[in-house]
Amino acid sequence: MISSLSEVEELAIAAEPVTTAVIAPEDHEFMLAVKDARKRCFIEPVLIGRRTVIEKAAKKVNYDLDTSRIIEIADRQEIANAAMDMLASGEVELVSKGQISTSYVYRAIIAQMKARQEEAVVSVQTFWDIKGCDHLVLLTDTGANISPGEKEKKAILNNALMVMQLLGYTCPEVMELISDSANLKDKHKHFKLVKTPVIKDSQGSYKQLEAQVLKKVLLGEDGDSINLNNLPHIMLMPDLNTGNVIAKLDFFIKEIVRVSCSYTSLGPVLLPSRADVAEGIMREFIFGVALVAQRRRLANG
């Protein structure tokens, strides 16, 4: 079981470079991360987008593009589609979003899922490496579904289980976050929550945590002190408003290091935020490469 991002990095270091479709790398911080990731042999980038803008960003960080493949496409949706086509065909093993609205990438993923007749629910998995916690914590969905219903949440959980499996979490603990207020509402309706329908009825290998407030999970049986090791491996967010706010609390809580991706059956798609600086983007590349390394390992038996 991979329990920290430093272990993730070890996996990435040991891996062969991963051919990566980079969608619209048009910003110097992003390009700096691409340059460093290539220099450290994590990725072999294929840059897709507007050549002049890509060249301008590369020049700013002294990145010599002569040895990098560039696919020139101007239309934003076509850029994202091209990257996902390459992932589907196996031409690349990893996709990373650059300076493009995430909605283009989501649409491209959904198109691929539909073509493969797979469940077309895209979700974002945010991993936290928390100081004082002995495992990685996955928060999902933190970026795609505005107000997911039971059906969508089951698909979100399935996506999460897929990526956790890759990291060696064969039977992760899952908790669907329920606020005190939600409990209050249910009590008025005389509906006793034991397990949420999503947790109770989903398929796959995982341990069901009884629906309860996070406070009680963290305080454990004795209820005296907080034990971060009690955090569930997977926390299902109630909606996008919550997922978005919580996922980025690393901006305030310095003990948290964050990486995110949207894991699909085709492979990982990295979705660094436009707010991320090179260091954070690099961390995401490393994470993506580690996931690809694990996919390769599983494929080779």
Binding site: S179, L214, I226, L228, T242, V245, I253, E255
Partner: peptide
């Protein structure tokens, strides 16, 4: 000003229990 009760509740909960704020 958080968007709704869920986001606000968990904002407070995560800051308190994980951020030790």
């Amino acid at each position: 000003i958080l968007p709704d009760t869920n986001s606000s509740y968990f904002f407070s909960t995560f800051l308190k229990y994980i951020g030790k704020v």
